[in-house]
């Protein structure tokens, strides 16, 4: 029976939350195709039974695990050869990766090796007369393309947070297979990591925050971001930024929200001094409510916002912080 195969690149860690969404997406496509949902779990020191059961509970029909110490970090020079072997063995109809840094690095290389095509950063799939059509935002989200892969297997990377995980169901059962005939060779590794540097980010992690306050070029400087951190502290919010603020060197790149930054889905997103470029909005398309503070009443951001204030943020933020604090006391 044909299959839709979702790659879960675990490295040393477990299976992250985003993979459950990927698996949910895979399972829906598989149902439409009348295929099985397969998950390939690659990494080192994986508890194949434990992690495998979890993937079954979230919709996989079968789980294939490649466990090897050389897969500790997701190095695409190594992983691509492993993924290629897995695909040749399982012969899936469609292969899915998450469109995160690892998936972006790996999927095109796998496509080249398998001599097939791929579509990146897809947000939905349709099955029409047995043909898989991927929906891909293009031109920074200003347009949508419907793309088909002319060769098999089709490969796609799936936008983070674009697909819902299935409800966890422990009654689901399936087979967990450890693939022990997949070769992994130390000589494949070409790139050496000399150092890992973490940049301290103040406050709550953007990805987890229910409320996010973000600043753009309109903030005017690194010190001025303090006003956003103040408001964020009062609201228990995370702080994000636009690409322009990152490029100016005001905030670390880890704070960039958008198409090529973080994809987030807070319930409230407060955009301050951000014009509302489509590439920025792409990162908050799952935000439930956008609030815009921008001195230009014609800024595109107001087209996406539920509430808006056309004012200089420097006069709005302090007063807003104070007023919210008062109101939240009651």
């Amino acid at each position: 029976m044909s299959s839709v195969l979702a790659f879960c690149l675990a490295g040393q860690g477990g299976v992250g939350r985003n993979y459950l969404g990927l698996l949910g997406g895979a399972s829906r496509i598989a149902t439409a195709l009348g295929s099985e949902t397969h998950a390939a779990l690659l990494g080192s020191d994986i508890d194949a039974q434990g992690a495998g059961q979890e993937l079954l509970a979230y919709g996989a029909d079968r789980v294939f695990c490649v466990n090897n110490p050389l897969l500790q970090e997701v190095d695409s020079d190594v992983y691509v050869r492993v993924a290629e072997q897995v695909c040749r063995k399982l012969q899936p109809r469609l292969v899915l990766f998450l469109c995160d840094d690892d998936g972006r690095a790996l999927a095109p290389r796998l496509a080249w090796r398998l001599g097939t095509g791929l579509t990146t950063d897809c947000t939905a799939f349709d099955v029409e007369d047995g043909v898989i059509v991927a929906l891909k935002p293009v031109f920074g989200g200003k347009a949508l393309a419907r793309v088909v892969c002319k060769s098999q297997p089709g490969i796609a990377t799936v936008r983070v947070r674009s697909m819902e995980a299935l409800a966890r169901d422990e009654a689901r059962s399936g087979e967990i297979t450890v693939l022990d005939d997949i070769a992994v060779d130390a000589s494949w590794k070409k790139v050496e990591v000399l150092d890992r540097v973490k940049e301290e980010v103040k406050g709550i992690r953007l990805e987890d925050a229910e409320v996010v306050v973000s600043g753009g070029r309109g903030i005017g400087g690194a010190e001025e971001f303090a006003a956003l951190h103040d408001l964020a502290r009062k609201l228990g919010a995370g702080v994000g930024a636009s690409r322009a603020a990152v490029d100016e060197g005001w905030v670390p790149a880890g704070m960039q929200v958008g198409l090529t930054g973080k994809m987030i889905g807070p319930s409230v997103y407060i955009a301050v001094g951000i014009s509302g470029a489509s590439q920025h909005i792409a990162g908050v398309s799952n935000a439930k409510n956008i609030i815009a503070i921008n001195s230009d009443p014609d800024a595109p951001i107001f087209r996406y916002a539920r509430l808006g204030v056309a004012e200089d943020y420097r006069t709005i933020l302090p007063a807003l912080g104070k007023a919210l604090e008062e109101l939240m006391k009651d």
Partner: peptide
């Protein structure tokens, strides 16, 4: 190219902004 763009369109999105 192995892929084919079947169509390209502009998505509609509608949010009414309440300007304070």
């Amino acid at each position: 190219a192995s892929i084919e763009v079947r169509d390209l369109f502009i998505p509609v999105h509608k949010v009414e902004c309440e300007l304070i």
